[in-house]
Design a protein around this nucleic acid. Structure first.
Lengths: 163, 163
DNA sequence: CATTTTATGTCAAGCTATTTACATTTTATT
DNA sequence: AATAAAATGTAAATAGCTTGACATAAAATG
C-alpha cells in the first residue's frame, strides 16, 4: 500500500521547492509586517536597511552608492530612487567625494540620525523580538548560517557578484 | 583588554538584526538569480510562484484570487496586476465561479501548462540544485523548519492573517 | 600623451507590492 | 423582505526593484 500522508511524510525531491517557497513567503511577510512596525515613521523596510547601514560605526563620513549596493545586494539603479526619497525627506545627504568626482558619498543627516535613534531603533528591536519569539540564540545562529550558505551559492549564480 | 575581533566574536544582542539582514539579502538574490534562471522564458519569480501553485494536483478547476493571496501571502491587489499580465500572455485564464458570481477562478491554460512542463520545470530544478549546493536533506529540513517558525510569528503580527 | 576600458551615478521603462478607495455580490441581522 | 455587514475583485497612487542606456570621470593601455 502507498503512503499518502502528505502532512507528515516529506518528499525529499521536493525540499528545494519547499525551502524556496518558504523563503518567498518569509520575504513577503518581512516587508509587510516590518513596514507596518515602522508605520508611524513612514519608513519602509528598504529604507530601514539603508538607514541601518548608514547608522553603523565608521559610516559617519559616508559610503558610495556602489559600496552600498554591494552591501545590500540591490542594484545601484534601485538605490538611486530610494536615496532620492530619503534625501527629499531630509534623512540622508549626498556629498561629492573629495577623492573621486564621479562618486557621491551617502551619509545620514543630523535629522536622519535622530530619527534612527529616537523613532526606529526601539521599534525595530521590538519587531525582532516578536518575529523571533521562541528562537534560542542557537536557533538564530543556525538560521543565520543557513542564510549565509544560501547567499554564497546565489552570489555564484549572479554575474554582478563575481569580483 | 577588550575583545574586538568582530569576525569571530558574535554579539548576541545583534542576532536579530543579522538574521533579518540576511533574510533581506537572500530575498533580493532569490528574485535576481531566480528571474535570471528563467530569463529565456520571460517569466519572473513572482509569476513562477503563481504558475507553480496552479500547476499542483487538484488545481485543475482553478482557485480564487482570495485563496491564492492567502497561499502566496501577497495582497490580492497585487495579484490582480500579475494575473492580468499572465492572462495577457495566455498562460492563465479567469473564469467566473459557478457558485459565487463575485469570485473568479484562476487556472492554467493548456499553453500555460505546457510552458510549465517544457520550459520552467527543469530550469527551476537546476536552479534549486545550484542554490542549495552543499545542503544535505537534513540541512534543508532544518532550514525549512526555521522558515516555518519565522512565518508563524510574522503571521501573528499581520492583521490580515488573523483568521 | 592619446585612446580605450572600466567605474560611477542617473534616467527611463517594465514588473512587483502595498495601501486607499470603490463597485458588486453574498451573507447576516432585524 | 429590507437593511446592514462582510467578502470578492479591481483601479489608482506610491514605493521598490530590475535591466538597458547614457554621460561623466578615472584608470589602463598603447
Amino acid at each position: 500500500m502507498k503512503d499518502n500522508d502528505l502532512t507528515q511524510n516529506i518528499d525529499l525531491d521536493d525540499l528545494g521547492n519547499r525551502l524556496f517557497f518558504r523563503l518567498y513567503q518569509c520575504a513577503n511577510m518581512m516587508h509587510k509586517t516590518g513596514t507596518r512596525a515602522l508605520e508611524e515613521t513612514k519608513i519602509t523596510t528598504q529604507q530601514w536597511a539603508i538607514i541601518g547601514a548608514l547608522a553603523r560605526d565608521g559610516m559617519e563620513k559616508g559610503i558610495s552608492v556602489g559600496d552600498l549596493t554591494r552591501f545590500l545586494l540591490v542594484s545601484r539603479q534601485n538605490l538611486t530612487g530610494v536615496l532620492s526619497r530619503l534625501e527629499a525627506h531630509g534623512l540622508i545627504e549626498r556629498v561629492v567625494s573629495p577623492t573621486d568626482s564621479r562618486s557621491r558619498l551617502i551619509r545620514l543627516t543630523e535629522g536622519g540620525r535622530a530619527v534612527w535613534k529616537n523613532d526606529m531603533r526601539d521599534r525595530i528591536a521590538d519587531f525582532y523580538d516578536a518575529a523571533l519569539e521562541g528562537f534560542s540564540s542557537t536557533d538564530k545562529i543556525h538560521a543565520i548560517h543557513y542564510f549565509d550558505k544560501l547567499l554564497q551559492n546565489m552570489k555564484q549564480l549572479d554575474p554582478d557578484s563575481q569580483s
